[in-house]
Simulated assay, not measured.
Amino acid sequence: MVAANVSIPKLLSPHALHSLLQYQDSSKARVIPLDVSLVYPPASEYTQHLDGRIPGAKFFSMKRYAAEDPELKTTIMLPTAGKFVGAMRYLGIRRDDHIVCYDVMGFWTPARGAWMLKVFGHEKVSVLNGGLPAWKAAGYSIETGSYPAAEPSDYPFVLRNKEMIASFDSVASSAINGSKPRVIIDTRPVEEYADIGHVSNSFSLPFTNFLAGPPPNDMRVLPEERWKGIITKVVGDDLFKQMEDKGNELQVISTCGWGVTACTLWIILGSFGVNTTVYDESWEGYEMRAGNPVEKGSPDNLHPGTPTKGVTSFPELQIAIDALPDDGTPKVDEVSQ
């Protein structure tokens, strides 16, 4: 049981989550593990969920419940308000439940799940550090097989907090002007940043820098006392000095390939009080618009690249939702206010 006046930690260890699940009072606000796995190359996350999950976990499809952009065809986007609320009601989740996001990889998608919940104003949100692999490594049991649908909840209709989402216009203006106090940080692998290209005037800070081991090995986030050193090694002390000088005027835009690993930086920088937004479209959306300026090269050898051509570098991942094979993922209704 998590009391209303107790601060909700951003990261939970398997031991902490196990304790919460063991001693919660089911008549009050609940602790619910939420599997938000997203697997590349395309695979059935729901099948993996049924093959092994944290006891009592529910499944939210970041792929099938996403919104689709009819023009850009971007693949992993925030759900519409109606789809999000419809999913929450279907899963039986209540507004005061403490949701703990996790995935089957360790730390690939759960920060995205936490950011999504916060965008829609869900207050009690944590991430399981190390995900399902860490849970199993700690010796805790898993559930397998199908399970009955939950009793639908009365989750209220909510809208997105747009202040948490970086717009294309804000990214594009920074790419052209390098405007301050706005900083863009790219969390993709440095090879993608350098060879495929990146938003001009953006820093390279791979999200894996914050992990204990390279994927798919130990995907636990390193201790918090190491975070600032990792950040300053890339962007210098200037980011934190600007934060002290400008406060909330300083805006960091976190971006990646599809708006997934960018959310790791949202968690990390948020712990320092840095105003961090996530560019939901990320590189996919930026690249799918023709004529945007591109920079290439490693951080110590940057040079202009060919402007974007309006196509994606990863067409094999750009699969329309209605073209995905039916793997049994529960279908949820889009509700209206």
Rank of each mutant, 00 (worst) to 15 (best):
G197Y: 04
F203G: 03
S200N: 13
V221D: 08
D195K: 01
G229Q: 14
E224F: 14
G229Y: 11
F207R: 06
V221Y: 05
H198I: 06
I196W: 03
M219R: 06
D238T: 09
G236C: 03
P215R: 09
E225A: 14
Y193Q: 02
N201K: 10
R220Q: 14
F210G: 04
I231D: 01
R226P: 00
A212W: 02
A212F: 00
R226S: 15
R220I: 05
L205E: 03
R226I: 10
S204C: 12
T208L: 02
T208W: 01
F210I: 05
A194R: 04
E225K: 15
V199N: 06
N209C: 12
W227E: 03
N201H: 13
I196K: 03
L239G: 00
R226V: 13
R226A: 14
I230M: 09
G236L: 08
D238P: 01
F207V: 01
P214S: 15
S202F: 07
K233N: 12
I230V: 12
R220L: 09
L211R: 06
S200K: 14
V234D: 09
G197M: 05
L239M: 04
V199I: 14
A194E: 04
V221I: 15
I196F: 03
E224H: 15
P216C: 05
W227C: 10
F207I: 06
W227Q: 08
P216Q: 00
N209H: 13
W227V: 08
S204W: 07
L205M: 14
E225Y: 15
F203Q: 07
N209G: 11
P214F: 12
V235E: 05
V199W: 09
V234R: 10
E224Q: 15
T232S: 13
P214Q: 14
S202V: 02
Y193N: 03
T208H: 02
D238A: 11
L211Y: 04
D237Y: 00
N217K: 12
S200W: 03
D237I: 00
I196P: 02
I196H: 02
L205I: 13
V234H: 08
A212L: 09
L211E: 10
G213Q: 11
G213R: 07
E224D: 13
F210A: 04
P214R: 12
G236Q: 00
N217H: 11
T208A: 08
F207G: 01
R226D: 12
I231W: 08
K228D: 09
V234A: 12
N217M: 08
F203H: 11
R220F: 09
I230S: 07
D195S: 03
D238K: 10
Y193F: 13
W227L: 07
D238E: 11
L239T: 00
T232A: 08
K233W: 01
L222M: 14
P223I: 15
L211N: 01
P223L: 12
E225S: 14
T208M: 01
I196V: 11
V221M: 14
P215L: 09
H198W: 10
I231A: 02
L211V: 02
V221P: 08
D218A: 09
V234W: 04
P223G: 11
P206H: 05
N217S: 14
G213M: 10
F210P: 02
